[in-house]
Write a protein that binds this DNA or RNA. Structure first.
Lengths: 163, 163
DNA sequence: GGTGAAAGCGAGGACCA
DNA sequence: TGGTCCTCGCTTTCACC
């Protein structure tokens, strides 16, 4: 898996990526038909894209509600200082907390933005107090709750125009 | 596809969901082996979970960098007022902008939190000015940039304990 | 709910243009 | 690169515990 940017991607690769991003379980034959190619070269392209790391993985998207995760929260965190040690420790800890769906180090007023799930508001409160607030070096926390998922799926735009 | 919450999920279902969340391309045979079941019942369970909407879809995760999306931004938006009309229009518009990876209606100071990708900072500036700022009813915008993806994948926790 | 088996299909490779 | 063919193993669906 290469991590270099700027891999050569032609129009077929991009169409393939678009399709596979929308439905990861497409068979090679189906995929081939959709991008108007025959199965073998289509399969080879996909393998190449996997090798190059353009395709990072295949995942089932699960319904949070039905799994009992009724609350999605966005938590902004400000650190007391920006020592590499403190931040690295924070990141390492956060990475291992399953309720933390995503975490970004961000620019601006706050240092980190976390997306978190919880069973309900009460659980979230407990989680915030026990698990987040108690981490070392945290100066300020600001939580917002998702009232409505307007758009999700985390699909990247794949435009043939930019090839 | 049902949308009701609280579907019956036993330990096997949860293990299955965990596996399929991590690797959507597992074959039924592989999946069955991992959860110590034979192929047929395993396949039936998966189908049931798809039917019930617990599994919402299968998606390839693509590498943003390699597709030329060098910038990930989090944009907080405050609306001038909260008229249903204005908000619905905003949501509908936003849903159709490919650069908008996700959008949540949130509680707190701001009304919406959007995750956006752009080729570079300059493109983002242009996008923010032309596409976002010009939407009707927007009072305030606050953008932060992702400096580092500490954790991603959007995997939900699936604990057998909560079954 | 679980097992076993049968039929049809796709993955993945060899090979040619 | 792309296309064709081939083979093995898997998916999928039975009928039956």
């Amino acid at each position: 898996m290469k991590n270099h940017a700027s891999i050569e991607l032609d129009r077929l690769d991009l169409r393939l990526l678009q399709e596979i991003q929308q439905d990861a379980r497409l068979t090679t034959a189906e995929l081939a038909e959709r991008i108007s190619l025959s199965a073998s070269p289509c399969w080879r392209r996909l393998k190449r894209l996997e090798e190059e790391g353009v395709v990072e993985g295949y995942h089932a998207r699960l319904n949070a509600e039905q799994l009992g995760w009724g609350v999605t929260a966005f938590v902004h965190i400000m650190m007391e200082n920006h020592s590499a040690e403190l931040c690295t420790q924070f990141e390492e800890t956060v990475r291992h907390i399953p309720e933390v769906i995503s975490c970004h180090n961000i620019s601006g007023q706050y240092d980190f933005l976390l997306q978190i799930v919880a069973r309900d508001l009460q659980s979230f409160g407990e989680f915030a107090r026990k698990t987040i607030r108690s981490l070392p070096g945290i100066k300020e926390i600001n939580s917002s709750f998702s009232l409505k998922e307007v758009k999700t799926g985390n699909a990247l735009p794949v435009e043939p125009s930019t090839a």
